[in-house]
Amino acid sequence: EDASELRSLSYRYETRLLQANEMHSVVGSDRYVGGLIDMGSGHLHPLNLALGEAAAARQLGAKLFEQSAVTRIDYGREVKVHTARGSVRAK
């Protein structure tokens, strides 16, 4: 239904319906009975994005402190983030 609706709206990107046997090569799972590839859409994995950004920050010299819950954020020309044991400022 989604593919038909997109075609009826003159959607300019390629769409392709996948059968169950094709899904494994796309998502690495046998649990799906089919799917729709939409070349105009995007997807990101939030955890992998955060891990990649953390690795890049470390390579640039940033120090990361896990398990440091933020208790307050002061916004302004300079942002100040507070935790139970200290704070950090950023421009």
Rank of each mutant, 00 (worst) to 15 (best):
A57W: 12
E78F: 00
R58Q: 13
I73N: 01
V81C: 02
Y75R: 13
H82Q: 13
S10M: 04
Q59S: 14
L9K: 15
T83I: 04
A62M: 10
H82W: 15
R85D: 15
F65M: 06
V33R: 13
A69V: 11
H45N: 14
H82I: 01
P46C: 11
N48D: 12
L60A: 13
A56D: 10
H45P: 00
R72H: 15
E5S: 06
R12F: 09
S87F: 14
Q19W: 01
L17G: 05
E22C: 08
R89C: 12
V81D: 02
E66N: 09
D30W: 00
K63D: 12
G40N: 06
R31L: 14
S10W: 03
L17F: 03
I73L: 02
E53S: 06
E14Q: 13
F65S: 08
Q59E: 14
V26N: 00
T15N: 07
T71A: 05
D2S: 05
D74W: 01
D30A: 06
Q19F: 03
L47W: 06
S41A: 15
S41T: 12
R85A: 14
E78Q: 15
A69K: 13
K63N: 08
M39D: 08
S8A: 11
N21S: 13
E22R: 07
A55K: 10
Q19I: 00
Q67P: 00
L6C: 05
H45L: 02
D38Q: 03
A90L: 10
L18Y: 03
